[in-house]
Amino acid sequence: MAQTTLKSRSKNTYKPRLGRQIREKIIEFILFLAAFSSVATTVAILHILIKESVLFFQQVPIVDFLTGTKWTPLFINPEYGILPLLSGTLLSAGVALVVAIPAGTIAAIYLSEFASSKLREIAKPALELLAAIPTVVYGYFALLYVTPFLQNFFPKLPGFNILSAGLVMGLMVIPFISSISEDAMSAVPVGLREGSYAMGATKLQTALKVVFPSAISGISSSYILGTSRAVGETMIVAIAAGLRPILTWIPFEQGATITAYIAQVSLGDLPHGTLAYQTIFAAGLTLVLMTLFLNIIGHFLAKKYREIY
């Protein structure tokens, strides 16, 4: 009797178990689809950019695109040389990094090695606010406050210039560099620091000669991230740098970046399928390849210098 009840019970519980397993599998599959959507996003980005760029390069030779020194796609005699946009992009990102890398690194060293935990709790969110401000507001600052301020020192500075856009962009990039670098430095084991202190080194010597080299993997990836932020930034440059693509290496002039050009063209009502419409995708592809290149460098730097404790 006892035997049969046991048997029947195990039979009864078997059926819901099967249902449960099927349900579990279905849920896992749905979750997998959600996770895979990020891959689909990447594929979609590449698909769109490459599809339109191929149409573009059927009409404009790729050599002209890469070596041309004039970018005038909306003129009557259009020329499609990406170099002026590239120079504007690199120049404004360069100005930004000249500000952001030293400031971000010093701030990170200070926060990780010198600051008391109380000060850190105030200073970290304060710095992160810099990244929370919408970039269109930064553009406003650059155009209406920073440029007039700079004109006090450089009277010849035009109303639209790369310098002020770059400086403001640097301010924006600081927290990206400081917070990741600080995380990397905080992750260095205390034992290394104590060893250094025991040898009579000061905090600064420890920070520069022990902690910084040990954390170089994380720090270098913060620099890469900061660079790709600066290269991909749109609004600050679109508002404050002047939208005129000139091949120049002087930040005291007007200039346009790849991103600013895309924004400028999108603002006008551009018919779908025209060559001018395709230029923004070709420019976008160039930008994606640049950031991809940066990411790959970052990946290898991080791998090469990673210290495992």
Binding site: I45, L49, G232, T259, I262, G284, L287, V288, T291
Partner: peptide
């Protein structure tokens, strides 16, 4: 990925 690429 730069935000403007999402726009494209």
């Amino acid at each position: 990925v730069p935000s403007i690429i999402y726009g494209l």
